[in-house]
C-alpha cells in the first residue's frame, strides 16, 4: 500500500534531529509537526516572521496578528521570536535553517525541482519556495510518486518551469525514500507492501537499486 499523507509526514519526522531549526512548507510538510518525537527540541520557522511556531490556538487564543506562512492562525512556542520578512529570509538565504521540507510537482536526477507554475494553468506565485531551495543545504522534497493517471513525477528532466536548479538531494514519496546523487535517483527505502518493481515502474528518471532495500518504518 502506498503511504498516506500522515505516514509520509511521520517518515520525514525521522529526519529531524534534536536542536534543529526547521521550515515546513504547506501541505504534507505541515503535518510533520505532528510527529516530532517526544523529548526532542525542534524550533519551527515560519517565513512570514516567526521562529518558534506553536500549535493552533484555542478559540479564545485566536489572534489575527499571529499567523503562519499558510495564513493559518497559530500560537508561539516557548522561546519564540518575531522579526521582519527581510530578517526571515536572511535566516533562510544565509543557510541558518537546518532542514527545509517542501512539496513539488516534479523532481529530476539533477536535483532540479519544479513546484510553482504549470504553464497554461493559473499561476499563483512561488511565495518563499525559491528562496528556501536556494538557501538550504538540507532539503527534503515530499510528493506523490506519480500523478492520478500513473504518470511518474520522478523524472530525468523536469518538464515544468523550475523553482530551483541542482538543489535537491532527498525525496520522500508515498512509495519510497530516494537520494539524488551522481545524476540518478538511488532507492534508499520502500514503503511497506510496495514492491521494488512498482517503484521501478513509477520512476521515469534513472533509478539505481541497491542489493538490499530497507522497508520504511512508518
Amino acid at each position: 500500500m502506498a503511504l498516506s499523507r500522515e505516514q509520509i509526514a511521520s517518515r520525514i519526522a525521522q529526519e529531524l534531529q534534536d536542536g534543529f531549526y526547521v521550515n515546513l512548507g504547506i501541505g504534507i510538510p505541515t503535518l510533520v509537526a505532528n510527529y516530532i518525537p517526544d523529548g526532542m527540541e525542534v524550533m519551527l520557522q515560519s517565513e512570514n516572521g516567526l521562529l518558534g511556531m506553536g500549535q493552533f490556538p484555542t478559540e479564545d487564543e485566536v489572534d489575527a496578528d499571529l499567523i503562519n506562512a499558510g495564513k493559518q492562525t497559530v500560537t508561539m512556542a516557548t522561546g519564540a521570536s518575531l522579526f521582519s520578512s527581510a530578517e526571515s529570509f536572511a535566516m533562510i538565504r544565509g543557510g541558518h535553517v537546518d532542514l527545509t521540507v517542501l512539496g513539488a510537482f516534479e523532481v529530476d536526477v539533477s536535483g532540479n525541482i519544479a513546484s510553482w507554475m504549470i504553464p497554461g494553468k493559473l499561476i499563483k506565485g512561488m511565495g518563499g519556495a525559491m528562496d528556501l531551495v536556494a538557501g538550504a543545504d538540507n532539503i527534503i522534497v515530499t510528493m506523490m510518486h506519480a500523478d492520478k493517471k500513473g504518470n511518474s513525477k520522478i523524472l530525468d528532466a523536469c518538464t515544468l518551469p523550475l523553482t530551483g536548479a541542482q538543489c535537491i538531494k532527498k525525496v520522500v514519496t508515498d512509495l519510497a525514500v530516494l537520494e539524488i546523487k551522481d545524476g540518478a535517483f538511488h532507492l534508499l527505502e520502500r514503503a511497506p507492501d510496495v514492491s521494488v518493481e512498482e517503484i521501478i515502474e513509477k520512476t521515469a528518471g534513472k533509478l539505481i537499486i541497491p542489493d538490499e532495500v530497507k522497508v520504511m518504518n512508518v
Binding site: 527581510a86 526571515s88 532540479n112 511565495g127 518563499g128 525559491m130 538557501g135
Partner: peptide, 28 residues
C-alpha cells in the same frame, strides 16, 4: 520570490541599488 521581494525593498530603503542572490538562478 518572497525573500527577494523583501530584500529588494530593504535594499531600496538602505540606498543599495541592486544585489546578487542565488534565489531563482536557473529558473524563469
Amino acid at each position: 520570490p518572497q525573500g527577494t521581494l523583501a530584500e529588494k525593498i530593504r535594499a531600496g530603503g538602505a540606498g543599495i541599488p541592486a544585489f546578487f542572490t542565488a534565489t531563482g538562478y536557473g529558473t524563469p
